[in-house]
């Protein structure tokens, strides 16, 4: 299990354990973290799993590319640190990853 810290739009911090191999989105949905809708269930098709990666973690998670970047361009308030978190696989080196959830999804 890997600890991920989700910061909900109202500032509430939720630290939850997520199984390796699952996505950061699944970690949020299965722990009832508010603000992640994930309509398409991780197919990189809906852009309702948008969140901001803490800058210090960007090197490990990488930046959005391809379809993901295309969709983020039209998401609600995208930033350079934006990711669709269904596209981030949980691995041991993400222990302590911190992400912030926007107040609205696309």
């Amino acid at each position: 299990m890997v600890k991920i810290i989700y910061v909900e739009a109202d500032g509430t911090e939720r630290a939850v354990d997520v199984a390796e191999g699952h996505s950061v989105m699944e970690g949020a949905v299965s722990n009832g973290v508010h603000g992640i809708v994930a309509e398409c269930g991780g197919a990189c098709s809906c852009a309702t799993c948008h969140a901001y990666i803490d800058v210090s973690w960007l090197e490990k998670t990488g930046l959005a590319e391809g379809d993901e970047a295309d969709m983020l361009e039209f998401a609600h308030e995208p930033k350079p640190t934006s990711r669709l978190i269904c596209q981030i696989e949980v691995t041991s080196d993400l222990e302590g990853l911190r992400i912030e959830i926007p107040d609205e999804q696309a």
Partner: peptide, 12 residues
């Protein structure tokens, strides 16, 4: 089709 930008724009 393989064109997420058009999809997002159309939806908006």
């Amino acid at each position: 089709i393989n064109d997420a930008r058009s999809f997002m724009m159309a939806k908006r």
